[in-house]
Amino acid sequence: MKFKILVLFISVFTLSTSISLAQEKSNFTTKLENRITNSVEIGIDGMACQEGCADKIASNLKERDGVISADISFDNKNGLIVFDPTLISIEEVKTIITGTKVKDYKYTINSITTQDN
Rank of each mutant, 00 (worst) to 15 (best):
T29F: 06
A48W: 10
T14K: 02
I97T: 05
R35Q: 12
F9V: 04
C49A: 07
F28Q: 01
K56W: 05
F28R: 04
S73H: 01
S26N: 07
G79P: 05
S39W: 00
S18T: 10
S39A: 04
L15Y: 14
E33P: 03
K25Y: 04
M1F: 15
S73I: 05
I72W: 00
D45S: 14
S73W: 03
S11G: 15
K2C: 08
K77L: 02
L15F: 14
I36R: 08
E41M: 13
I109E: 09
G52S: 14
N27S: 07
R64N: 15
K62M: 15
N60M: 03
E33S: 13
S20M: 01
L15N: 08
I96C: 01
E51K: 05
L21K: 04
L6R: 04
S18E: 10
Y105T: 07
I90K: 07
I96R: 01
G46D: 14
K106W: 03
K94I: 11
V40P: 04
E24D: 04
T95V: 11
G43C: 02
D104W: 14
E92W: 04
N78V: 03
S59Y: 13
S89F: 11
C53N: 10
G46E: 11
T98Y: 05
C49G: 08
N34E: 14
S16F: 15
T14P: 03
I68H: 01
I57F: 00
C53A: 14
A48E: 13
I36L: 15
M47K: 04
I36D: 14
L6V: 05
S111G: 06
A54Y: 03
T30G: 12
I81G: 08
E51V: 12
V82H: 03
N27F: 02
D84R: 05
I5S: 11
S20D: 02
E41T: 15
S11T: 14
T100R: 01
L8Q: 09
D116S: 07
F28Y: 05
V12H: 07
D116A: 07
R35P: 01
D45P: 05
N38A: 13
F13D: 11
V7Q: 06
L61D: 05
V40L: 09
V12T: 14
A22N: 09
A70C: 10
V67R: 07
